[in-house]
């Protein structure tokens, strides 16, 4: 048997992780509930909640319910999958392979963004059917692009969170504590400016806060969000997303080293 040490390819490793995520999704019927059924329920609830609340209530309903159905999947999907790696005992062979774990997480993030967008699409269809017509969007193309960008900003935070799952088996516990606070605090359901002022600086640490505010500015005429307006929201979203992705690279490297020092990879 000739030895063939060839290392790894970033693209192939990411693609392999994406492919495995899709296979695992298709093989596990429990995913049908959060990805297919929950968006229908969220869409109907949001439609009733916002009905009659101004001329752009449909957009509010779509954004609120859309975020609700997508954010958990996109934000925590990768971390949860890492938790599953601990549960299955696959974290050890995966980390023992030449591929840095970051690329495994990236593959999962791509899938989570795609499945999150499918959920968002379902919400859109449900709300449009309930209302009997589409919302009036000033710029549908910009709305679609920003929508995808919000997903990516959520995913950027998700990559950093995934590192905690590698770091400790108690990451799920930490996630459960922070889940609702993060959801409300970053403006997933309603604008952050409606929250007490002291929460705003904390919210601005997270890219989705900026991205969601930009999305609302773009899609709801007369929307009152952060005083600096759409353009600076966009700049803030791009900068914070980039910072999170940079942090993710460093954090993963350090976390991988740390778990080799502590020796808790097999713990679940």
């Amino acid at each position: 048997m000739a030895t063939a040490a060839v290392g790894y390819s970033r693209w192939r490793s990411t693609a392999a992780s994406l492919r495995l995520s899709v296979l695992m999704f298709l093989a596990d019927p429990q995913w049908l509930i959060p990805s297919m059924i929950a968006p229908v329920i969220f869409g109907l609830v949001a439609f009733e909640l916002f009905r009659g609340a101004g001329p752009y209530f449909l957009t509010y309903a779509i954004l609120g319910a859309g975020m609700m159905s997508m954010w958990g999947q996109t934000l925590y999907g990768s971390g949860w999958a890492t938790g599953q790696d601990r549960e299955f005992g696959t974290l050890e062979p995966t980390l023992q392979s030449p591929t840095p774990y970051l690329y495994i997480v990236l593959g999962r993030v791509v899938w989570n963004v795609v499945s999150g967008l499918i959920g968002g699409g379902i919400v859109y269809v449900v709300v449009v059917l309930a209302a009997g017509g589409p919302p009036s969007l000033p710029n549908p193309l910009a709305f679609a692009i920003l929508f995808v960008f919000v997903m990516l900003s959520l995913a950027a935070v998700g990559v950093v969170f995934a590192a905690f799952y590698v770091y400790t088996r108690y990451a799920g516990f930490i996630q459960n504590i922070g889940e609702f606070a993060f959801y409300v605090g970053t403006g997933c359901m309603f604008p952050v400016v409606l929250l007490p002022f002291w929460t705003n600086p904390i919210a601005l640490v997270f890219p989705p806060t900026w991205a969601l505010d930009a999305l609302r500015y773009n899609s709801i005429p007369g929307y009152v969000g952060f005083s600096w307006g759409f353009e600076w929201d966009l700049v803030g979203a791009v900068v914070t997303t980039a910072v999170y992705l940079a942090i993710a690279g460093t954090v993963f490297h350090r976390v991988e080293r740390h778990v080799l020092e502590v020796g808790n990879l097999a713990d679940f």
Partner: peptide
């Protein structure tokens, strides 16, 4: 599929 996944992580040529 388990083997395909790890083959890719080890960079085995497609």
């Amino acid at each position: 599929d388990n083997l395909r996944y790890f083959a890719d992580l080890y960079g085995i040529p497609p």
